[in-house]
Design a protein around this nucleic acid. Sequence first.
DNA 1: CGGAATCCCAAAAGATACTG
DNA 2: CAGTATCTTTTGGGATTCCG
Lengths: 131, 131
Amino acid sequence: METLAEPETITAKSCSKRTCPTGMAGIRDALYVLNGKWKLPLLFALTDGPMRFKDIQRALGDITPKILSKELKELELNEFVVRNVYSTTPVTVTYGLTPYSESLDAVLFALKDWGISHRKRIVASRKADIT
Amino acid sequence: METLAEPETITAKSCSKRTCPTGMAGIRDALYVLNGKWKLPLLFALTDGPMRFKDIQRALGDITPKILSKELKELELNEFVVRNVYSTTPVTVTYGLTPYSESLDAVLFALKDWGISHRKRIVASRKADIT
DNA sequence: CGGAATCCCAAAAGATACTG
DNA sequence: CAGTATCTTTTGGGATTCCG
């Protein structure tokens, strides 16, 4: 996995129109790195502090070790996550967020808040259907 | 496609810990509705106003009509998009954003901004590699 | 133009088992 | 515990063709 798609040179410094190439490219770049079913939930789970492999697995519910391992590696590659190994017996490994990962906070929170309020809306409209 | 995953009843009203079940569920709910490669770019593209099918296709680059059609239907189902039909000959169809879709603005902007600055970071570090 | 229909493929994700 | 290895399934997405 690479860290980013080919860098289509972007010239504009800022964009008034929201669909300007830069804006669209921004969306796509972000999605390119945060793709898949697990990366955002994973990052969110780690915001409380480093966790061990098995604990992450439990926190995310039904992710298999294979997938989890792969996702963690990709997050490491993109410098969102650090892997720490402790020489206990048996060995202990934790995964924690990097300082750079904090740059994603706005995205994470916006997404979380929206998800929560969206669910409320859906639930409310379902009740209305019944009534 | 349904509009939301099964409504695991959430009790907590607010969360101090970021990884509390509600927060995690929020992320997953959001991702459930905004999944795939195209939904966010699509919503972003429409923020400048309604567009016709073919124009959307061009704006997104290489999306095929089949996929575009499917994605638009899902966005319609979730009340982010409205389909407008004009009885011209041949018929004209436009897709526009609903008021509810504005609730996604924070997500869209956060994602776009992050993507832009992330690219800058990558490009800068590549130059550093060369130097 | 605005799609639907059909066929096809690669990649993502899951199940299961196994190892140091 | 912290993963790896294999295998299988799913599904997202693309190519092409065709129709009103």
